[in-house]
Design a protein around this nucleic acid. Structure first.
Lengths: 140, 140
DNA sequence: ACCTGGAGGTTGTCATGTCAACCTTGGCTT
DNA sequence: AAGCCAAGGTTGACATGACAACCTCCAGGT
């Protein structure tokens, strides 16, 4: 069961990622970042907020943002010497807009269309369930 | 929904991976390789077979095996100049044996115990479903 | 005012993954 | 027998992710 679970996950992610990349030149991670930025009104957000939304550590986010900055998808604006705001650029918005329908189609094709509504509901419920709990107990 | 789906999978994979790594020094990938090798009687298998089981490309597998070979978890035996067999070493078996209970416990803790039996069944069914189909049509 | 701690970010390094180019060799054609 | 080709693997370069060390600067106590 574990193997199957792992495989299907990687598979789906991979396919959707490829579709987006091929069609718009965005990687899956980039899409994730952009789409969360766009989700808040002004398209701007503290780095740390973003990090916790994506459950990434700050280092990973920092590297990722550096790359995205080079590609002009986002900008960084220093607020008070400590806090940094990430801002969606024009290009970022455009790319995202272009990617969204592709993404939606790909998800539908690779995931949703193969499942019953009931199965989808279950997955959503399960995802939320597992996502909520944050505390970790180690194996001990 | 997509974000939640993605998050939950990464999360679970991550946690299980960490548990194994911490307890036995094996990475998730290594565990995967070893466990599939062990699944067949003699603990030996053509590289390509292994690759397709894991849905990895040959390059990735090759690199991975090189690393595992260095750590003495597996050996490679050249059969006919082209074909290569991967063989579980003693150490590999031991590590795997040590890891299995940890793995099982971790999966239970991080996944199974938080779900109802019904949800688990659904996931299994879904995983098999998505895993089976191999052909890809691209976005076009 | 000082000084100290920890929050917020960045950077370097190493492990892992992807991609494309490249060997080798068994099997098929002719 | 000679050639060719595709299957099976390897390799090197580059992208991505994890981890730990480090820098900066606000906040709060004294």
């Amino acid at each position: 069961m574990w193997h199957a679970f792992r495989l299907m996950h990687e598979d789906v992610l991979d396919r959707v990622g490829r579709d987006i990349a091929q069609a718009t030149g965005l990687s899956g991670s980039e899409f994730g970042v952009l789409s969360r930025l766009a989700a808040v009104g002004k398209g701007e957000m503290r780095q740390q907020t973003l990090a916790s939304m994506m459950a990434w550590d700050k280092s990973r986010l920092s590297h990722q943002l550096t790359r995205m900055q080079e590609r002009a998808l986002i900008e960084r604006r220093r607020a008070d010497g400590k806090t940094v705001f990430v801002v969606l650029t024009k290009l970022g918005r455009e790319k995202l807009a272009a990617a969204r329908p592709i993404h939606a189609a790909s998800v539908r094709r690779n995931l949703l269309s193969r499942l019953t509504q009931e199965q989808i509901d279950t997955i959503v419920r399960v995802s939320n369930l597992l996502g909520e709990e944050d505390e970790r107990s180690s194996v001990s």
